[in-house]
Amino acid sequence: MVGEGILKGLAETARNFFGSYVSKERLTTVQYPEQRLPRIEAARSFPFLVYDGSDWQQGMRCVGCQICEKECPPKCILIEKSKDKKPDAVGKQQFYPAVFDIDISVCMSCQICVEVCPFDAIKMDVDVDLPTDNRFAGLLLDKQQLAKSNEYYHGIHPTEAAAVDAALAAERAKAQAKKPAAATPPAAPPSAAPVPEAQPVGGESK
């Protein structure tokens, strides 16, 4: 009979329409800004820099090695290495980035910077509410805007952050064990308290 197929199809739409009143699976619409789906843990948006402790300048894990700058496919990272050194998370004297900019209008969220970073210093954020009225400066994130605490990292990617912390702790233990007991002055405590002696932080006041 001509029209049978059409009727069959309409029965299907009717089933979906009335079904949406009873079955959650058929009603998938979310009233977006007011109502949001739970965030998926692995989600990623743009990179940020992790720091330990409470002071973002002292605790920053990044040592300005510029590997991510070189490996970034669209070349959206700009790093200028510092002239002086300061103790890093493991307690070693290290350089730090005097300038660390990411242009998120160019960044394509591929997370290759995260993969190549040997210091677990750069990780992917989940924030997507980044609209701004300035196309250039508004989307250029500097070191201070990029710095986020380790607690924040634990908040957004708990599983991954726990694994990173465990690896870092093991590395620190190894570094401590290697050191002759009383030969050198003890290294600054890695993450907990702010580092005692203040380092000159030239070019960092932003």
Partner: peptide, 10 residues
């Protein structure tokens, strides 16, 4: 085009 993070050949 204006690019704030230019380095190397860019």
């Amino acid at each position: 085009e204006y690019e704030p993070t230019a380095h190397d050949d860019v």
